[in-house]
Deep mutational scan, measured.
Amino acid sequence: MAAGGDHGSPDSYRSPLASRYASPEMCFVFSDRYKFRTWRQLWLWLAEAEQTLGLPITDEQIQEMKSNLENIDFKMAAEEEKRLRHDVMAHVHTFGHCCPKAAGIIHLGATSCYVGDNTDLIILRNALDLLLPKLARVISRLADFAKERASLPTLGFTHFQPAQLTTVGKRCCLWIQDLCMDLQNLKRVRDDLRFRGVKGTTGTQASFLQLFEGDDHKVEQLDKMVTEKAGFKRAFIITGQTYTRKVDIEVLSVLASLGASVHKICTDIRLLANLKEMEEPFEKQQIGSSAMPYKRNPMRSERCCSLARHLMTLVMDPLQTASVQWFERTLDDSANRRICLAEAFLTADTILNTLQNISEGLVVYPKVIERRIRQELPFMATENIIMAMVKAGGSRQDCHEKIRVLSQQAASVVKQEGGDNDLIERIQVDAYFSPIHSQLDHLLDPSSFTGRASQQVQRFLEEEVYPLLKPYESVMKVKAELCL
């Protein structure tokens, strides 16, 4: 049975990233139509530049190519590739079939990587351009969430054990800070992308030097003109047959890092959902379990974690691919890159769409948070109580021993009897502590235990987050809708 299948058929496997999760716009960027249309555009740009620099290419040939950029006979191309065992030459023939007058000058002087690699770089750039505003929107939604809850005390956790208090907004800023680093890295790697350009079979530009009869300047002009037509500021000066596969490492490393950030955020949300302090959106008709109707599973956060793990592992592909590119190139890269580049971007696209949807509907339960604080705060307040007693004339050592005994009794009630923490009640009825009984409410005010959390939130948002989001103001209103 021949390899390949009808990918629109229910009898043929289709990647869930495309069929179930990723956005239509990201799927289109990695589609065959987008790819092969870009090949034709690159052939047109090459012909236009070659004509401008004096090669015998007519206006009629150029116009014929322009008129057929979208006229792609995919069936013919597939048949040609089956016959020739070469995808680029299959599309040269297919393009030439609908451009008979231009057929002889299509791909003039070029090698397969002229269309293959340059198209990949265009796709990487455009895919990054799709991700950047999506990530900015996630940051914006979380920034709104953090600002609104900047002063809401909550129990902090280290080692997932109760620690000092923080605020809900401050905790959210930990998430935002990681995503801001990801946004900066995505922008950097996007701006650092260079075009492969017009380089020939081993990167020496020998074929173009021959076409222009040894004119170095025209060869350099050709490279520059096509690079500018493709919208790049610069091209690699040095290439082998391909652009260095280190570029793929750079791009997928940034995406993998984004995956790590999203995994951490969504894990926190899942843990908070278990504590009943916070939940992701839950639709009115949504079913959490087929057997347990009360369940409210954090399905979206779980999906993000599941896909983020996949995204983090994909960076190993370009690392290994770059390491086995012998001399000017081997074909070890080809099949692998067809999979890992598309999957990385479709996965990143999915987790950003999902995280935006989550961040637009996060639900906080202040009463649950308050109750958990009441359970733990008495123990945390013991040092403040000791200091207040010393100020009232008591002995630190005597007070410490009193607190120690009462704390152990209260802990026994919590752990052995399943009761509430009654340390404060014990202190309130103990005559030894009568000098500070009137101060206990103040000493137990949760806001006095959150330090500068709310001020940190305000400063972080104003100095770091809002300036970073400013270039994306025009796209901030787009909502994230999930079908599944």
Results as ranks from 00 to 15, higher is better:
Arg338Gly: 04
Phe95Met: 10
Glu148Tyr: 11
Gln286Ser: 06
Tyr243Ile: 15
Phe28Glu: 09
Gly200Lys: 01
Ala453Glu: 07
Ser334Cys: 03
Pro471Gly: 15
Leu209Ala: 10
Phe195Thr: 03
Gly116Pro: 00
Glu481Gly: 15
Arg188Trp: 02
His97Ala: 10
Asp182Phe: 02
Thr450Asp: 03
Asp144Asn: 13
Arg33Gln: 10
Glu50Arg: 01
Pro293Tyr: 04
Leu482Ser: 10
Gln184Pro: 10
Tyr34Ser: 12
Glu328Cys: 04
Thr111Glu: 00
Met278Ile: 12
Thr201Pro: 08
Asp73Glu: 09
Asp59Arg: 09
Ser12Thr: 11
Trp326Tyr: 09
Thr38Met: 09
Glu277His: 06
Pro24Ser: 12
Ala110Trp: 02
Met299Val: 11
Lys66Trp: 11
Met476Phe: 15
Met312Ser: 04
Asn68Ser: 09
Gln184Asn: 09
Val414Ile: 15
Glu80Leu: 07
Leu108Ala: 14
Ser306Thr: 03
Glu79Asn: 10
Arg452Ile: 11
Gln455Thr: 11
Glu250Trp: 05
Phe460Trp: 06
Phe74Arg: 11
Ala235Trp: 12
Ala256Thr: 08
Ala18Arg: 07
Ile385Glu: 02
Arg234Asp: 10
Val198Glu: 03
Pro298Ser: 08
Leu440Thr: 02
Ile123Val: 14
Pro162Glu: 01
Leu174Phe: 15
Phe160Ala: 06
Glu328Gln: 00
Lys224Val: 10
Val168Phe: 05
Cys266Lys: 01
Glu60Val: 12
Ala453Gln: 00
Gly109Gln: 00
Pro100Thr: 12
Arg459Trp: 08
Leu183Tyr: 13
Leu252Pro: 06
Cys173Leu: 03
Arg426Lys: 10
Thr239Val: 08
Ser306Lys: 06
Arg85Asn: 03
Lys229Pro: 06
Thr58Tyr: 12
Met387Val: 11
Gln164Phe: 06
Leu444Cys: 09
Leu252Thr: 14
Ala127Glu: 09
Gln416Thr: 08
Ala411Leu: 05
Lys246Ile: 03
Ile373Arg: 02
Ala78Asn: 12
Cys305Asn: 07
Leu307Asp: 00
Glu79Leu: 12
Pro10Arg: 14
His400Arg: 03
Tyr34Gln: 08
Ala3Trp: 10
Met389Tyr: 04
Leu311Gly: 02
Gly4Leu: 15
Ala260Trp: 02
Ala322Ser: 08
His107Phe: 00
Ala230Asp: 02
Pro366Ser: 03
Arg196Asp: 00
Ser448Glu: 14
Arg137Lys: 12
Asp178Asn: 06
Leu131His: 10
Lys479Leu: 04
Glu360Pro: 05
Ser257Val: 06
Cys399Gly: 07
Leu155His: 04
Gln320Pro: 03
Gln320Leu: 10
Leu252Ile: 13
Leu46Phe: 05
Leu319Glu: 05
Tyr472Ile: 13
